[in-house]
Design a protein around this nucleic acid. Structure first.
Lengths: 351, 351
DNA sequence: CTGAAAGCGCTTACAG
DNA sequence: CTGAAAGCGCTTACAG
């Protein structure tokens, strides 16, 4: 807990302003917060003096006295991922507009680091926490770091283990199952019958949901999914390129692959290119996220748009709304994702 | 200044722990900060009680009393841009490891919003500010928001106007001119003679530097740059695609284009594709930044790597070092960028 | 309309 | 080794 911290230079305080104007600190405080109780003349004199001395409001002191807070903690598993960067931008936009400040934490997908980050952030007394948890992080540990009272909004993934009944959190989740269902149905409608699900970790929340959506859509169409047609990878391009071999080496290859996300789809395309296969023509595929590259890749990638910046705004709004009502039951929000069709990545099967 | 803020729930404080253990607050405080002065037994009892009651340290109160700070403000012009997202991730990594917390602000490239963001952040009393300024932001206004005492590190761009002698800031800049010089020389070495500089705003700091680097390299090679060979655009893909027409409609086209950055290069490639031109073959090009897409695009894009995450770490280290020495003169750091050659984007000219 | 006093949750000399 | 008192920079009743 005790860490090195920097000393502060001497600052202008209310006392300096009050002394210069010949009024009390209380009066200056009232001016600062725009109270109508103060005489116009006095107000003008005080404001001029604030300006002149370069006074900077010490919100920490005010928060301490008023028992309020003016920050929101945002903890994401990977800021380097454009999806989460956009999400963070959306959060900060709304948080800032509400007069709060965003405390940032990035966990690099490590549950250990997440624990340390939460412990550090919570000491700064945020009004609430928006958490996109690292893989494998547990409800009990998170609650341990945050305490039972902290308003908490979970984004994108669930924690492992149960939410304590006493401290339900809010959630904002993408409708992964339905989204992947749309992609799968699109491929089926184009004539594909042998379809694989490629990439992602099977046990992560979105992984489970996306696989489930895929399997359900296949079942509805009465299509079989051979066991080799479910291939795992880390949810990034590099590992996906590696894992592609498993899929591409099958004696009976699929004609199409529903991919866990765009990064994984791009990794698969990369691997195909290296083998002289043409993505789209030799294997149709779809992604998830609609990252910028999806439109740019060749062929353009059919994918599911999640509007991460808008999700960030939404998450911030949900959490800010919660601050006023700490004791109401946890609220679960699921947002639909939209199929973005780029024909070139999923033509009908060759033969 | 007065904005809505959320009320705090009743919290466990030092007083609760002290009362439960039958010791004074001072003793608990010493335990918290690991002082060796406390009796082993007392320490153990206090620690057990801290755990039992779920005590959360109030760092704001401690900072107030000790006149210290434990946060760093990070203000970027666009978090949605992967370059700045990576930079932010690097900053947060080092800031967090030093026991500080990152206060995030995103300005969306608006000098107005930047002013508001700085004003809000500074009230939270950060130890210093890392600023990647919005285009067109002025030194005087920034100093006005931050006060003369605030340690400040400028990243990537300069402010307009002079730094006051009393308050020099540190800078961390990319060696734009030299980087673009490398790219230009590479194209020249491959046999190109008619080379354009494409995209970016001519008056932004990096825009000026990159153009200057291009012109200097052309001059060294005694090559002419017709006036139509300098084309401006916003530094993003969309506007670059629009601006491409100016370049591609020239009666005497260049055989190669040195692009302001990767986004702009990708926009140019997009526009070429729409006209049935093949990037690389019909017009060689280079980028700047080495974003992920540069490797993935087809053809792969020759570009300049800036290692934004490492730049973020470096910025945080520079600022943290400055905290201990507030009065030493401002320090200017320029880091080299590295040419990443992907042959396919810049073959020799066709004829 | 303005001021004197108390207090938010900590830490820091200073006694003992 | 532990406790009583003062104070960081604000705000909030309460008097006047």
């Amino acid at each position: 807990m005790p860490l090195s911290h920097a000393p502060l230079r001497r600052k202008v305080t209310l006392i300096d302003i009050a002394a210069a104007c010949g009024v009390s600190r209380a009066t200056v405080s009232l001016v600062l917060r725009g109270s109508p109780l103060v005489n116009r003349d006095t107000r003008a004199r005080v404001q001029a003096e604030l300006q002149r001395q370069g006074y900077i409001y010490n919100r920490a002191a005010a928060n301490l006295r008023r028992r309020t807070t003016s920050s929101i903690a945002l903890v994401v598993n990977d800021l380097g991922n454009p999806f989460f960067a956009e999400f963070a931008a959306g959060v900060d936009e709304v948080v800032g507009a509400a007069g709060f400040v965003t405390l940032l934490g990035s966990t690099g997908e490590s549950a250990e680091r997440q624990q340390a980050v939460l412990g550090s952030l919570v000491e700064h007394n945020p009004g609430g926490v928006i958490l996109s948890p690292a893989e494998g992080s547990e409800a009990a540990r998170v609650m341990d770091a945050l305490g039972p009272q902290m308003p908490l909004l979970m984004f994108n993934r669930e924690l492992e283990g149960e939410a304590p009944a006493s401290a339900p959190w809010d959630t904002l989740m993408l409708d992964n199952a339905r989204g992947i269902g749309l992609a799968t149905e699109h491929l089926i409608a184009r004539g594909h019958r042998r379809i694989a699900f490629f990439g992602g970790h099977a046990r992560s929340t979105p992984g489970q949901q996306r696989r489930a959506g895929f399997l359900a859509a296949m079942k509805r169409a009465k299509l079989e999914v051979p066991s080799g047609f479910l291939v795992e990878s880390a949810p990034n391009r590099l590992d996906a390129a590696r894992a592609s071999a498993v899929l591409l080496d099958l004696r009976t290859r699929p004609t199409a692959a529903v991919c866990y996300n765009d990064a994984v789809a791009l990794g698969l395309m990369l691997a195909m290119g290296r083998r002289g296969m043409r993505p789209g023509r030799d294997l149709a595929l779809t992604g998830f996220d609609d990252i910028d590259e999806a439109a740019l890749a060749s062929p353009g990638l059919t994918t599911l748009a999640t509007a991460p910046r808008e999700r960030g705004r939404q998450a911030a709004r949900l959490l800010l709304a919660r601050l006023g009502h700490p004791h109401e039951p946890g609220q679960r929000t699921t947002v639909p994702v939209e199929l973005v069709i780029r024909e070139s990545s999923c033509p009908p099967p060759a033969a």
